Simulated scan of single mutants.
Amino acid sequence: MRISETDDDNWFDDAAGRLIRPYTVSNGRTEPSIRMELLSMVIATGRRPHGHLGPDHSQALDLCSGVTTVAEIAARLRLPAVVAKILLSDLAGWGAVDTRAPDPMADNSNPAVLETIIYALKQRL
């Protein structure tokens, strides 16, 4: 069993996956404080929250340097979408990110849109 050596991967094992349970990342919370969809757009504002950011919040904030979706951030963090939403809602509450509802044309019940999301997620994992 090899545990990754880099700072970003301290809590990730190549064979076992993430070594910290998702509910630990969200401090036991199960609902984000701000409503977001998988296709909601997120971007960093350039403002840093006061105080120390935990590693998951820092990673999420770094991923928001350009406009991206909640689904993309969840995939890159290798976290369940609801946990990513909780992290992002914390960042939004601190003024570090802005969120925007998905374009009404991006109907998440459209099979083509869902297939595109699934394909993108598989490419990241």
Rank of each mutant, 00 (worst) to 15 (best):
E5G: 07
E5T: 10
E5I: 05
E5F: 06
T6D: 15
T6N: 11
D8C: 04
D8P: 01
D9S: 13
F12W: 14
D14I: 10
D14W: 04
A15T: 12
A15F: 02
A16P: 00
L19C: 12
L19F: 11
L19I: 10
I20Q: 09
I20R: 11
R21V: 13
Y23F: 12
Y23I: 15
T24W: 07
T24M: 13
G28M: 05
R29L: 15
T30L: 11
T30H: 10
E31L: 13
P32G: 10
I34C: 05
R35E: 15
R35I: 04
R35Q: 14
M36T: 06
E37C: 09
E37Q: 12
L38T: 08
L38E: 14
L39W: 09
M41I: 15
V42M: 07
I43Y: 00
A44Y: 04
T45P: 03
T45E: 07
G46V: 10
R47C: 04
R48K: 13
P49M: 11
H50L: 14
H52P: 01
L53W: 00
G54F: 02
P55A: 13
P55C: 07
P55Y: 08
Q59H: 12
A60C: 09
L61E: 02
D62I: 06
L63Q: 07
L63K: 01
S65Y: 12
S65M: 10
G66E: 15
G66L: 08
V67G: 08
I73W: 03
I73G: 00
A74H: 06
A74Y: 06
A75V: 04
V82T: 14
V83P: 07
A84P: 10
L87P: 02
L87G: 00
L88G: 05
L88S: 05
L88I: 07
S89T: 03
D90H: 01
L91E: 03
V97Q: 04
V97I: 14
D103Q: 01
A106I: 03
S109P: 00
P111F: 04
A112I: 11
A112H: 10
V113G: 01
V113W: 11
L114R: 15
E115S: 12
I117Q: 11
I118T: 10
Y119W: 08
Y119F: 11
K122T: 07
Q123T: 05
Q123H: 10
L125V: 04
